[in-house]
């Protein structure tokens, strides 16, 4: 029988991102008291005055790695944690901050900061956490889904690996009985996007933006064709495919596409 283990020590850490995922944990009003009954949050700079320097049983990491100093920090957290879980798409895939990987960084620096940019500790490419350290589980999404987070904490509390679905958003979208938005001519990313959000956007009539990153064995070619037939330009398609997960550009199948 599953048994509650001794309360695991948990650290919650923010890197480059909007901090929305951490905020989402704070927003779990219905569950937060129960959650604190399951885990012992020893470090959380956003929400606590006193914070432990580690070690932790579980590290929850939000944000992408954009600065050199962040590499050292994430490595240290990894060394001091038994399990490291990324929360949100920035930490998992690079997310919105990594959109700048597709542009010229020096020009951007100049636009924002003018000629004196030497003090900036910015790397040319923004990378997901998994680029630097081993990640045991990932809860993608922009922001991370609250329910998925609760499920993950419960799983950890009984010693299970947090699972995220290995299929596309369409599963949840069909179960919620939405008519297919692609069929209505809208540029929906549902079929190529990892489920787990309960098809939040399509259920409210908005297309899936692909914020949770590509699904297992993603078929970029098929989605490309559909969007093209619906009138999307190659540039538009590329932008959609790379928006939350720029590393998609490194996928073999992606490189076969003509943009």
């Amino acid at each position: 029988m599953a048994k509650a283990k001794a309360k695991p020590k948990v650290g919650i850490f923010g890197f480059t991102g909007c901090a929305g995922c951490q905020l989402n944990i704070l927003n779990l009003e219905d569950h937060i008291v129960d959650l604190i009954g399951l885990i012992d949050i020893t470090t959380w700079v956003m929400a606590k005055a006193e914070n432990s320097p580690g070690p932790w049983d579980i590290a929850l990491v939000e944000g992408s790695i954009a600065k050199k100093s962040e590499i050292e920090r994430i490595k240290k957290i990894r060394e001091n944690s038994k399990i490291l879980i990324t929360i949100g798409s920035c930490a998992t895939h690079g997310g919105l901050p990594a959109m700048r990987n597709l542009r010229d960084t020096s020009a951007m620096k100049k636009t924002v900061y003018g000629d004196t940019t030497d003090h900036l500790d910015i790397m040319d490419k923004i990378m997901p956490v998994s680029h630097y350290v081993q990640v045991d589980a990932a809860l993608p999404g922009c922001p991370m889904d609250k329910n998925e987070f609760v499920r993950a904490v419960k799983a950890l509390a009984v010693g299970k690996t947090p699972q995220i679905p290995n299929f596309a958003v369409c599963y949840e979208c069909r179960i919620r009985e939405n008519a297919c938005l692609l069929k209505e001519g809208k540029f929906c990313m549902g079929p190529v996007t990892q489920a787990g959000c309960d098809a939040l956007c399509p259920s409210n009539g908005a297309v899936c933006e692909g914020c949770r990153g590509p699904v297992a064995q993603v078929n970029w070619g098929a989605e490309y064709k559909i969007l093209q037939e619906l009138g999307a330009t190659p540039e538009e398609i590329k932008r959609r495919f790379l928006k939350y997960c720029p590393s998609t550009a490194d996928m073999e199948e992606f490189q076969e596409l003509v943009f």
């Binding site: 599953a2 129960d34 009954g37 399951l38 419960k154 299929f167 596309a168 599963y171 069909r174 549902g190």
Partner: peptide, 27 residues
């Protein structure tokens, strides 16, 4: 095919299922 599963979900005869255990917050 993108293996999205839409066809099977809306199908009146598809019946495949998975079984999972879920614990409550008090374990």
């Amino acid at each position: 095919c993108m293996n999205c599963g839409s066809c099977a979900l809306v199908c009146p005869t598809c019946y495949c299922f998975d079984v999972q255990d879920e614990v409550d917050l008090s374990i």
